[in-house]
Design a protein around this nucleic acid. Structure first.
Lengths: 193, 193
DNA sequence: CGGTCTCTTGACGGAGTTCAAAGCTAGTGG
DNA sequence: CCACTAGCTTTGAACTCCGTCAAGAGACCG
């Protein structure tokens, strides 16, 4: 538990043992059952989550009540509604566990204190934000350059195991396609079973 | 010049006069003529730019040589190819001046030194990256939820002056539409001239 | 073994693209 | 300061991708 978080931090910065202990002490270990929510739309997102085990999805419903999945996150990833968390606005996203999921959660005030007491965390989160910016820019290319079939093929090629861990209709939602059309694409991809 | 940068920083953090002077001394003032490039694809992006005056676009060409504009930036904005700049990879983006443009540019090594010597800059850039993440997430909704007409109308409504500063075909590229189709949409929007 | 959740099929329609051509507009040089 | 040209915008027809709706077929869980 502690080790997983520590390794994740060490990828980007170096903390003294004391700094790490202080930071770690601010987290709470939480267990979510399948379909339980880490965050509900409208509430203010109080926590920044580090996923120790499991899978979650971030999603919202549009005006026609259709679900749009904006991201999945698995082991060793950080997840939150950044806008709600940092700006203290009501969330536009829901976050829900797709499997039994264990997280380390740190709340807003604790994180702000930690950022003050442990300045190197500003470096960590700056780099994390930079990486997120890069990922979002790549996602933009992904959606703009590729049509539905190409997006699906790319996902299957780059994350084959992940594709099997999540039902088709959720992938369709993430790919911004209808389940019906995705089904048609799959037929084309695999002419023989 | 100095004042504009100073104000931009003060929106998020507070620097001492000495810190600001140190930071400012690392910038170079550069003037670009219309159509000149701040950054060329393939080269490594050496500078982080702060636009003092003018407009620039970031864009790339797809495999069919079609141009895709990913962003515009105007006075008081920061712009760079984040991935190329921070990861020291060849750039995937070009950045080009659309008008006579003046920038303050800081290069990679100078910025790294500044981040070490002036720790509060880590806070500044962390917050800047956070804001960029939020902007990119909003952009994702913008493209996914809205159809072409809605995207165009939204742009005209929120940035009417900007729309006039940039040719239609560039707006079309930014909106991920063909110029032909955008022309059709404009006709629908303004039935009387 | 019954019901809900998930995936597939097919007919049809609409948003947006492609290609080709013509009509404008604005900047440039003569 | 006008004329010319290159760059920009508009038009229209044919076509493609993908969504909607309606229905049926599996599959999983209690």
């Amino acid at each position: 538990m502690k080790e997983i978080l520590r390794n994740n931090l060490e990828r980007k910065v170096t903390l003294t043992a004391a700094e790490f202990e202080l930071f770690y002490s601010k987290f709470e270990l939480i267990n979510y059952k399948k379909k339980e929510h880490l965050l509900h739309v409208e509430g203010i997102c109080e926590s920044y989550f580090f996923i120790v085990k499991g899978v979650v999805k971030s999603y919202y419903h549009d005006e026609k009540a259709k679900e749009h999945i904006t991201a999945f996150a698995i082991e060793n990833w950080w997840v939150t509604d950044i806008e709600s968390f940092f700006e203290r606005h009501p969330a536009k996203l829901n976050i829900q566990a797709l499997e039994e999921t264990t997280v380390l959660a740190i709340n807003y005030n604790e994180l702000q204190q930690a950022l003050t007491k442990i300045p190197v965390l500003n470096v960590f989160f700056r780099i994390q934000m930079q990486n997120m910016v890069m990922a979002l820019q790549r996602r933009h290319h992904f959606y703009m350059k590729l049509n539905g079939k190409e997006r699906y093929d790319f996902l299957v090629k780059t994350l084959p195991d992940f594709v099997q861990r999540v039902p088709q209709y959720m992938l369709a939602s993430y790919l911004e396609l209808t389940p019906e059309y995705l089904s048609e694409l799959r037929k084309k991809s695999n002419p023989h079973f």
